[in-house]
């Protein structure tokens, strides 16, 4: 009878505590994820039997012009959303970090949208964007003698219009992370730079940004996933949550939702989920590779 070492005992206890979240993740996360792969190969309307149809769902999907529009929209959200939101949040965090007066209040102001429910916010913005006589933005433009914008009723302006509140809502989170990153940079680096006579721009590009690399990697990955999964804003800001006009704002997740819960085509919805999964995986792996490489 050999006595267990302390290390062994610790490991056992660690596993005991981990068992609950582990079971949860397996049942609620991993199992459905894997199941989605098998459902994507079937024709299933939620009730009734699943019928195996091979890759038919994917064939139908790739031949559907709307799917390509939707995929294009999804990437548009990503390509516009990530750089704009990161740039804005970095600038705000950079200057917010340098002020002391009203610092806490300002930070709270930026953070509040992140805490607000997306649905309520989307509806408020939906009304902002209305044409005259009720839309706040267009009323203001009218006062200045500027022609009104179509916003949500335009096939070109609708997507950026929907994206704006999404960026705004996520800003608070990104600012807080950036500020934590800025604070973590040792003061001595800046002091040394000062002694060497480096200017503000040089300090920013030579010290601040390189030191923030892990923070930037984290935010790029997280916000990319966020913009690729955009749903609440589109669902609540477009007529009947259709992602219109003419599918101009419809992202992949909304398309999945419509297939699953409007048309009850669970197989088709699962197939799209698989596509989304692959996109997320490829992009994330790519970003981690490129951004993390050793200098």
């Amino acid at each position: 009878m050999s006595k267990r070492t302390i290390a062994q005992k610790r490991a056992i206890w660690a596993w005991v505590f981990m068992a609950v979240p582990l079971v949860y993740f397996i049942l609620v996360r991993f199992y459905p994820t894997l199941d989605a792969f098998s459902i994507s190969l079937t024709d299933w309307n939620i009730v009734g039997e699943k019928r195996y149809i091979g890759f038919d769902n994917f064939v139908v999907l790739f031949n559907d012009p709307v799917f390509w529009v939707v995929l294009g929209n999804t990437f548009e959200y990503l390509i516009l959303g990530v750089p704009i939101s990161l740039l804005l949040s970095f600038i705000i965090a950079y200057y917010l970090d340098q002020i002391r007066f009203g610092h806490g209040f300002l930070r709270a102001c930026y953070f509040i949208p992140f805490l607000t429910t997306a649905v309520a916010m989307a509806w408020v913005w939906r009304w902002f964007y209305q044409p005259v006589p009720i839309g706040m933005i267009n009323l203001a433009l009218g006062q200045l003698g500027i022609a009104q914008f179509e916003f949500l009723r335009s096939t070109t302006q609708a997507l950026p219009a929907v994206l704006a509140p999404a960026i705004w809502a996520g800003l608070g989170f990104q600012i807080v992370i950036f500020m934590a990153g800025l604070r973590a940079i040792p003061k001595t680096y800046y002091e040394a730079a000062k002694v060497d006579g480096a200017g503000a721009w040089q300090t920013l590009t030579e010290i601040t940004l390189p030191q923030l690399r892990p923070t930037i990697v984290f935010l790029v990955v997280i916000s990319s996933i966020g913009f690729l999964r955009i749903f609440d804003q589109v669902y609540n800001m477009t007529q009947e949550g259709e992602g219109g006009p003419l599918n101009a704002t419809r992202p992949l997740v909304l398309h999945i939702y419509k297939a699953a819960f409007d048309d009850f085509e669970m197989g088709m919805a699962a197939a799209q989920t698989v596509v989304l999964f692959l996109i997320l995986m490829v992009i994330t792996v790519f970003q981690l590779r490129v951004l993390r490489h050793d200098r």
């Binding site: 009723r153 335009s154 096939t155 007529q239 259709e242 219109g244 006009p245 003419l246 409007d262 048309d263």
Partner: peptide, 20 residues
């Protein structure tokens, strides 16, 4: 057969005329 999908065909029909 699908109210929301069939409705959307009419919505899009008008949008193509009015917007495009």
């Amino acid at each position: 057969y699908s109210e929301s999908a069939q409705r959307k065909t009419v919505v899009d029909m008008l949008d193509r005329i009015v917007l495009n």
